[in-house]
């Protein structure tokens, strides 16, 4: 490696002779290095802190979780021998045949079907409007940001005030109020939670779009305007394509965050009620793995969930925004 690069590296000042060090200057002129590490090997350097972090902090827990999923594992004190037999795929089979788990996957699907489209549409529309607004800009932006920063314990109280049995919504609906009420109705509990999360998280996605909107070139709007496009047409012909990357991100993040739903059913419906209709896979993972001491089962569930979400996220990226590669 060294000899092949020095020929080309002659023009390079001496401290950079060692080709093993991918330093901060363009390394594109070293063919072998380029062949091994890509056109711009400096990418490795830029990515290094993240990679080191991922290895130092996440590699062990992750590998360990995979390991646990093949054992009837039990967390034990250092040096204590507890029988943790290898069980092969038993945990995976147990997960996939457990009615509570299957129900939770169904629940989270209902959640995503409501939450994700709503999030994408509302956040892009609201961000576009907020971006153009002149008066009360700070006030409006703060308003939309506030649910996102407020601790869940407090929001849950507000939501119960709105959607509780004797809450505001039911009072307004009068005889049209559902019975049993929203959060204790198996058919409505999950949609209500999905609305809650959409509302709570929307500020996050609006911010993402607001930042992305700053980079849509101004002249695109101008030329659209010269072509006689009204605000609605320029929204679809300029804004939507202009923030496509952000849309892919919002789509992916809302799916990932939604699939990891935990706090809301934990707090809002007191542990996944009624009858497990609002239990999420992560809630079940928490109950089985941490509360009940079956981390092998929980790990298998977590890994199945992770793989499923990764597949969905990568599909979203492919279909919604693959062109950047």
């Amino acid at each position: 490696m060294s000899s092949s690069t020095t020929r080309r590296g002659d023009r390079v000042r001496s401290p950079r002779r060692d080709p093993g060090t991918t330093d901060a200057r363009p390394a594109a002129r070293r063919p072998l290095l380029s062949r091994v590490l890509g056109v711009q090997p400096i990418g490795w350097l830029f990515g290094a802190p993240y990679l080191v972090f991922a290895i130092v902090v996440f590699a062990y827990p992750l590998v360990f979780a995979i390991y646990m999923s093949f054992f009837d594992y039990f967390f034990s004190a250092p040096g204590v021998e507890v029988d943790k037999p290898f069980v092969g795929l038993d945990n995976y089979i147990a997960v996939l045949t457990d009615p509570a788990v299957l129900q939770s996957f169904g629940n989270v699907l209902v959640f995503l079907v409501i939450n994700v489209p709503l999030t994408v549409v509302l956040s892009i529309v609201l961000a576009t409007a907020l971006n153009k607004v002149v008066h009360l800009r700070t006030f409006l932006r703060v308003s939309y940001y506030v649910p996102y920063v407020t601790a869940s314990v407090a929001l849950v109280g507000v939501w119960l005030f709105l959607f509780g049995g004797g809450g505001l919504v039911n009072n307004v609906l009068g005889p049209l109020a559902p019975d049993p009420s929203w959060l204790v109705n198996p058919a409505l509990a999950m949609p209500t939670i999905a609305l809650f999360v959409t509302w709570k998280q929307l500020g996050f996605y609006i911010l993402l779009y607001l930042a992305a909107l700053q980079n849509v070139p101004q002249e695109l709007y101008e030329s659209a305007s010269t072509d006689g496009a009204g605000p609605i047409r320029s929204f679809f012909s300029v804004t939507v394509p202009g923030v496509r990357q952000a849309t892919v991100l919002v789509l992916m993040l809302s799916t990932i965050i939604g699939a990891n739903l935990f706090t809301e059913p934990y707090l809002l419906t007191g542990g996944g009620g009624p009858n497990g209709a609002s239990a999420s896979p992560v809630l079940i993972m928490y109950q089985r793995g941490i509360q009940q001491g079956h981390p092998g089962f929980a790990a298998a569930l977590g890994i199945i969930l992770t793989i499923a979400v990764l597949i969905v996220a990568l599909l979203q990226r492919r279909f919604a925004g693959g062109r950047d590669e």
Binding site: I55, Y60, G79
Partner: peptide, 20 residues
């Protein structure tokens, strides 16, 4: 290497003896 060391350290820790 870092990863291997970390994993090795962990498995060692898991094997060391202690009170039961």
């Amino acid at each position: 290497l870092v990863a291997a060391t970390a994993v090795a350290a962990l498995s060692l820790a898991a094997c060391s003896s202690g009170g039961g």
